[in-house]
Computed example of a mutant assay.
Amino acid sequence: MSIMTQLEFELEFSQSEKQIAKYILNHGEEVLSMSVKELAKETYTSPATIVRLCKKIGLEGYNDFKIKYSAELQYDLHHTDRIDVNFPFSKDDSYPMICHKLSSLYQEVIADTIKLIDFTELNKIVDLLYPHQHIDIYGSGNSLLAAMSFQHKMMRISRDVNLRILHGEQVFMSYNSNSSRIAMIISYSGETNENIQIAQTLKENNTPIIVLTSVGDNRLSHYADYILNIGSREKIFTKIAPFASQISIEYLFNVIFSCIFQKDYEQNIQNKISYDKKNDFRHPLSSPVSDEIK
């Protein structure tokens, strides 16, 4: 996760650390000109508390924080023409403007996600998934919507993708897992306690784990055998909806499906066309979207 996202998330922060985090988020670039003593004075805390907070979010200390936080702010400054992934439209935008802004958002998020893909890692993930018939997906909320679409596509190429949406069922599924199954865990923050518990159990059961999560250090990534990164410009709480993370996750699932599909391309095409001609009755023969049936 980015520094700003971690500060907003406030994972296991003390009250004093939360106070420092809020000040940094509210004052942005102004903080970069402050010494640790000056920031401590402004937040009614101590230099030791500030250093402890920096280490808690994976940094070496206050100087390391200033360098990396400055880089994040500079990135945002140099991309002012980009869509705000957290608030991609305003209350005053017309409907056509909202349409165009969301279109730009899709393009930007996918472009960001492509840059994050380690293609060597992707090859390993596809090679791992290809021969396996049983894949279990773990996640919650909006991430499961993308997973359900992936499940539907994979079913068409004879892959059994398991999803559990009732509370507690995913934990139970992880207890029943073993080395013959593949686990995919989706978590933007990488800090959801239930996902951490599931990852620990899967590790104990020797189940290979593929993690889809945001860039940066988080607890879930420590359990991963393979990682694909989700675009990480989206905030945890301060946003209209999880537009960006949803787009990024769905894109990664589509990439994985497409790479697996390609391995038996001709056979998969023929199987799908044959199945659809026999079983898909959604469109009358006169429909312009219907293929010519021979």
Results as ranks from 00 to 15, higher is better:
residue 60 E to L: 12
residue 77 L to I: 12
residue 104 S to C: 12
residue 254 N to R: 06
residue 267 Q to A: 08
residue 69 Y to A: 02
residue 176 N to T: 00
residue 230 I to V: 08
residue 250 E to M: 12
residue 269 I to L: 12
residue 161 V to G: 06
residue 103 S to P: 02
residue 130 Y to T: 13
residue 8 E to I: 03
residue 253 F to S: 06
residue 166 L to C: 01
residue 93 D to Q: 08
residue 69 Y to P: 07
residue 30 E to V: 06
residue 159 R to T: 07
residue 195 N to W: 02
residue 243 F to E: 01
residue 277 K to Y: 12
residue 240 I to R: 11
residue 206 N to D: 11
residue 59 L to V: 04
residue 31 V to P: 11
residue 229 N to A: 03
residue 81 D to G: 07
residue 146 A to Q: 10
residue 213 T to H: 09
residue 26 N to S: 13
residue 156 R to E: 07
residue 263 K to H: 02
residue 146 A to V: 00
residue 294 K to F: 14
residue 160 D to A: 08
residue 130 Y to S: 12
residue 65 F to D: 01
residue 243 F to P: 01
residue 119 F to D: 09
residue 119 F to L: 11
residue 191 E to V: 01
residue 35 S to W: 01
residue 131 P to F: 00
residue 1 M to E: 03
residue 59 L to G: 10
residue 161 V to T: 05
residue 17 E to V: 00
residue 244 A to H: 03
residue 240 I to H: 14
residue 186 I to H: 01
residue 12 E to R: 12
residue 262 Q to P: 03
residue 260 I to S: 06
residue 292 E to Q: 08
residue 33 S to M: 07
residue 276 D to H: 08
residue 133 Q to W: 00
residue 238 T to L: 09
residue 66 K to Q: 12
residue 23 Y to T: 05
residue 225 D to R: 04
residue 162 N to Q: 12
residue 81 D to Y: 07
